[in-house]
Design a protein around this nucleic acid. Sequence first.
DNA 1: TATGAATGAGAATTCATTCAT
DNA 2: GATGAATGAATTCTCATTCAT
Lengths: 179, 179, 179, 179
Amino acid sequence: MKVFARSGFHATRVSEVAKAAGVADGTIYLYFDSKEELLFSLFEDRIDKLLSFMREELPKQPDAPARLRAVIDMQLGLLAGERDLAEVITVILRQSTRLMKEFATPHFTAYLDAIAKIVAEGQAAGTFRQDISPHIAARAIFGALDGITLTWALGRAEQGALGRAAGQLADVLLRGLAP
Amino acid sequence: MKVFARSGFHATRVSEVAKAAGVADGTIYLYFDSKEELLFSLFEDRIDKLLSFMREELPKQPDAPARLRAVIDMQLGLLAGERDLAEVITVILRQSTRLMKEFATPHFTAYLDAIAKIVAEGQAAGTFRQDISPHIAARAIFGALDGITLTWALGRAEQGALGRAAGQLADVLLRGLAP
Amino acid sequence: MKVFARSGFHATRVSEVAKAAGVADGTIYLYFDSKEELLFSLFEDRIDKLLSFMREELPKQPDAPARLRAVIDMQLGLLAGERDLAEVITVILRQSTRLMKEFATPHFTAYLDAIAKIVAEGQAAGTFRQDISPHIAARAIFGALDGITLTWALGRAEQGALGRAAGQLADVLLRGLAP
Amino acid sequence: MKVFARSGFHATRVSEVAKAAGVADGTIYLYFDSKEELLFSLFEDRIDKLLSFMREELPKQPDAPARLRAVIDMQLGLLAGERDLAEVITVILRQSTRLMKEFATPHFTAYLDAIAKIVAEGQAAGTFRQDISPHIAARAIFGALDGITLTWALGRAEQGALGRAAGQLADVLLRGLAP
DNA sequence: TATGAATGAGAATTCATTCAT
DNA sequence: GATGAATGAATTCTCATTCAT
């Protein structure tokens, strides 16, 4: 992750990763099928964690606004301590066209749908305004989170900044979505 | 633009671009210094247009909320008719690490600062709430616009969808940012 | 051909071929799709020559024994002046499993069938004995020619030796096949 | 032998051989020095058997024609029941340039010399015609046997076919070589 | 004796870029 | 100005072989 975050996907040499890991070049291929699979494994791990977290935590929340705030806290919280991971997910992962199309898109879609579902539920329960498309809202929410993470990862990345941002973003969105 | 949008930056061959343009490979290099410069020129053109548009139109708006709505309309309006451009800016441009670091980041920063400035002015004038960092707001707004454009570009990209999205996003954000 | 004959297929580096040809490595790939195609092109050229030679010369011969003698003269005559070609065909070509299966076998089969046909015609005309399978005879004849060429190519390869061998082989075979 | 016959020398992985033998990769190297030595051992075994067979059986034959027929029967008989061995000797063995030059050629030469000696003895005793070079004859005979074996091994390889071929080849050669 | 994880040298091929025409 | 043939640097991945256990 460190090497990918430093150089990007294409500029990263497999031999650099091997060196950073303290193994021989060939050893990489005992555990990963290709350079792309190597990058993807970093991402798969976390998205699984995020999805299971959502399955467990969201049902505990009383209503849609609380669930939306939980999603925002979770997504930014997951990355808050891991600048390299944040950069890999917001920037590096998108550098491999094949990776995006074949692996990442399905995961992103599932995640976006989960957010859209929260919005739709809120609309049905009367806790969110009706005149907004849940899918557009979901993409805007994800985009906002992603934009914040991106700047944080590429900038100074100070501890706590993502937490503060999460709170402010949630405040704005929840008020903006209120009926 | 068409070729880059189809294949991505790395998978696009300079010879493909030459073929699509109906010129010989070498001719490309009479007008562009490198493959990266070729991609970047597509983007530079439009960001200039966007920035001068902002310089002209924003002062005409009465207050910060109106200016923020104008920015949203402009950014999505610029891309609404040009799916390839939208894909190049949201996806392809980010595939070259060097391009992002050396060329694009300064432009993005300038644009983000312009948005942050609108938010700060609104806060000073009392038309936006005070408890939000203008920079965080700017990143979230840009990220939301970007996320909406990305999904539109990669999906069916129907005419009018971006305009509707712009209206809804502005509604949510302006209410969310209201004092 | 020189480089392949010296080192064999697998031990030959494409860069060696390029160097021997006085061009850059990449230039090879402007004219040949792969290393295998490079080797095969050496062979295709000659087999075409041999087959057209057979189409023209064989009908001029009065009977099957004369035609068989002509085939023997032709095959050894084609290689007599070109030791490298002889080595490529008898040894090197067989080192690439894929080349043998996909390209060479069909040509070999066609050639063997042409020889078998001569034997069968001789049997029908009563100029060859009946108790020999034309296909076994064809393979034995081809094998004998191949064995002679192989030893010649790997040995001192003196001028004229193949011609003498051709005469002796034809004498033995024709007497052996006589009714 | 099974694995080499299936895939050829270069395409065969040492790990495949180990798997087929039911041992670990490293175990192979306790018994064989290298992949080449592994292939060569398959061949050395049999050539020794063939040479000792020749030492014992040939002296029992009354004259050169009988000895030549015995050699033909032996060589094809040795391979008749073992298609994999036939393929290894006619095809696979020749795929390694080093193996051919360093190991196999001496054995082939010894074998060819033995055949040439039979021809020369027949000429001295007046049972073979004088106008044929014993070495050319030997190479042609070996080549014919090899060509027949090759087609048999690569084709359907039916039981008995090699025996029939041996008889026919001997008939043709002996009549062709008669004074 | 056997194992099998780790090694790391080695090579075909691609393609951005050049420059003689 | 335009061409496009030639360039050659650069990199992923394979697999025979080793050796600590």
